[in-house]
Design a protein around this nucleic acid. Structure first.
Lengths: 188, 188
DNA sequence: CATCGAACCTAAAAGCCTTAGGAAGTTGCA
DNA sequence: TGCAACTTCCTAAGGCTTTTAGGTTCGATG
């Protein structure tokens, strides 16, 4: 009986690739077993449920995304940082649509995806340093940026922008607008 | 053989309610048949596939949402309109999480959900009238607003904001910030 | 080299989607 | 009224996914 040499990490990785190929919705224990040339039941030695598999993909995606964002932010500040961060975000979504979809999973604090999710707000907050917002406004600005980036990527992926193209142009203008909003941040 | 009196519209409506109760992912032909006290196969006289069912829920949600937005916009302009539109959007998402999730489905132009989706950008554009953006900038501003609202509602629903609460405060600040961005719209 | 745990398997139950073909109400028209 | 056509619903059956239970083989360890 030749062994396939499957590990939990290998499974999550393969599931992530599968997600990018066929969509996160289609990531199934069966499909994964097929890919490994193994019966479905075998995978249950490594994972507890199909749900755990999906959460692991989410954690993987969130970590990769945070890594990229951190790289993009290194040595930059102000609008430079904003632009680089935004690009990292959207590029990842375009390169890895399946993983990106996974990152949007509902995450409860107990989940193993909670820690990487935390990193994101910390990274986003670091963009704001140079904008010097009033005390206590950072949380709101973080949420503005997160919402807009996430919303844009989401809408783009779900085909909402296909008509009347120039998505690139819109993306640039949206970032410009966010910059303007941060510079002229409304006083509380 | 007593008939249940099912119609396509009734199905979509019931599916929408089901979505709000148990989540859009759990909207299934089986569950719907159970609710109507009818066998699964019977429903296939009314719908072609489980997928069509989900698209119909999406269309229903998009229409309801556009109706509410239109009401909110009636007789308002400028920031007033912006605030009212945003409130209509988010309230709907909170009242009808399942429907709202459905509205985020991938929509191809041929789908019967395409028309209501169109209405949204038209309504959003009408908010911008009073801001008098430069020629050709409307598309981008529409996308900014759409992305931010959608992103915020999405993140809120997926639990990203549960820690360090004050979601209401953030929502208000985000709208303020968007207003600022529209007023000081960066020149092309 | 005997043993133990990890990796794998077969088997089976349960739930969902879908199609095929048939029976029973409903409607419309002669 | 009576029958033909249509609609609504059913039984039956095939196929796919998830999950659990219990058994077998591989490989490392003492």
């Amino acid at each position: 009986m030749a062994r396939a040499g499957v590990s939990v990490e290998g499974l999550a990785q393969a599931a992530a690739e599968l997600a990018d190929e066929v969509g996160f919705e289609q990531v199934t224990v069966s499909a994964l077993a097929r890919r490994f040339g193994v019966t479905v039941a075998s995978l249950y030695s490594h994972i507890k449920s199909a749900d755990e598999l999906r959460v692991r993909v989410a954690a993987l995606a969130l970590t990769e995304l945070a890594d990229r964002a951190a790289d993009a932010l290194a040595g930059r500040a102000g609008k430079d940082a904003l632009v680089a961060f935004a690009a990292a975000y959207r590029d990842y979504a375009k390169e890895h649509p399946g993983r990106y979809a996974a990152a949007g999973l509902r995450i409860d604090a107990s989940s193993l995806a909670a820690a990487p999710a935390m990193r994101h707000s910390a990274l986003t907050r670091s963009i704001l340093r140079e904008y010097k917002l009033p005390e206590g406004e950072d949380v709101h600005a973080v949420r503005l940026l997160g919402s807009t980036f996430h919303g844009f990527a989401n809408l783009e992926m779900s085909g909402a922008f296909v008509h009347s193209g120039d998505v690139e142009g819109s993306w640039a203008r949206v970032i410009d607008a966010l910059h303007v909003a941060l510079v002229n941040w409304p006083r509380p």
